[in-house]
Amino acid sequence: EVDTLELTRQVKEKLAKNGICQRIFGEKVLGLSQGSVSDMLSRPKPWSKLTQKGREPFIRMQLWLSDQL
C-alpha cells in the first residue's frame, strides 16, 4: 500500500528543488497532461480507492523518486 499523500508531497518537493515544471514531469515521466498531473498532485486519491490503471502514475512517481526511472 502506497501513502499517496506523502508520495505526492515528496514529488512536489523534488520538482521544486530541481526546477522541474509539472508539464515536463507529466509528459516525460508519467505520460500525462499537465492538468492531470496538477490534479493528481494536489488531490491524490487514497491507494485503496485507485484502480490498477489509477495506481500506475503513483508507481512511476515512486520509481522516479528512487532514481530508477
Results as ranks from 00 to 15, higher is better:
Gln22Gly: 03
Asp67Pro: 06
Ser33Cys: 12
Leu7Glu: 14
Leu30Gly: 02
Phe58Glu: 01
Ser48His: 13
Glu27Gly: 11
Leu5Thr: 14
Gly35Asp: 08
Leu63Met: 14
Gln68Ser: 10
Gln68His: 08
Arg9Leu: 07
Ser38Pro: 06
Met61Cys: 04
Lys17Phe: 04
Leu32Cys: 08
Arg9Ala: 12
Leu41Thr: 02
Val37His: 03
Arg23Ser: 09
Ser42Ala: 13
Phe25Gln: 00
Leu7Cys: 07
Thr4Leu: 06
Met61Pro: 01
Leu69Gly: 11
Pro46Ile: 11
Trp47Glu: 00
Lys49Ile: 09
Leu65Asp: 00
Gln62Leu: 04
Ile59Ala: 10
Trp47Asn: 00
Gly19Cys: 04
Pro46Leu: 14
Leu63Tyr: 09
Asn18Val: 10
Ile59Tyr: 11
Lys12Ala: 03
Arg55Met: 02
Ser33Trp: 08
Glu27Asn: 09
Gln62Pro: 00
Val2Gly: 13
Pro44Val: 07
Asp3Lys: 06
Thr8Ile: 09
Leu30Glu: 02
Leu32Gly: 05
Asn18Tyr: 08
Ser42Val: 08
Gln52Ser: 11
Arg43Phe: 09
Ser38Glu: 15
Leu41Ala: 05
Glu6Tyr: 07
Ser36Thr: 13
Val29Leu: 09
Gly26Pro: 05
Glu13Tyr: 10
Leu15Met: 15
Gly31Asp: 08
Pro44Arg: 12
Gln68Lys: 15
Met40His: 04
Val11Arg: 08
Ala16Phe: 06
Ile20Ala: 01
Glu1Gln: 04
Val11Ile: 07
Gln52Leu: 12
Gly19Asn: 13
Asp67Ala: 06
Arg9Phe: 07
Thr4Ile: 08
Leu65Phe: 06
Ala16Pro: 07
Gly35Asn: 14
Ala16Asp: 11
Ser48Leu: 06
Lys49Asn: 07
Val11Pro: 08
Glu6Ile: 06
Trp64Ile: 00
Val11Asn: 08
Arg55Asn: 01
Asp3Trp: 05
Lys45Arg: 15
Pro57Thr: 14
Arg9Asp: 06
Lys49Pro: 01
Ser36Val: 15
Phe25Leu: 03
Met61Arg: 00
Gln22Glu: 13
Lys53Ile: 12
Gly54Thr: 10
Glu27Ser: 13
Arg23Glu: 15
Lys28Arg: 09
Asp39Met: 07
Gln22Cys: 04
Arg43Ile: 03
Arg43Tyr: 14
Gln52Cys: 12
Ala16Thr: 11
Trp64Cys: 00
Ser66Gln: 13
Glu13Leu: 08
Leu63Ile: 06
Leu15Thr: 03
Leu7Pro: 09
Lys28Trp: 04
Ser66Asp: 15
Arg55Lys: 15
Val37Cys: 12
Ser48Phe: 06
Gln52Ala: 14
Glu13Trp: 03
Arg43Pro: 03
Ser42Ile: 08
Asp67Arg: 13
Ser33Asn: 13
Ile24Arg: 10
Leu69Phe: 10
Lys53Tyr: 11
Ile59Met: 12
Leu7Ala: 08
Gln34Val: 15
Gly54Ile: 14
Lys53Glu: 13
Phe58His: 03
Gly19Leu: 03
Ile24Asp: 12
Lys53Gln: 08
Thr51Pro: 03
Gln34Cys: 04
Arg60Trp: 01
Glu1Ala: 09
Gln22Asp: 02
Ser66Arg: 14
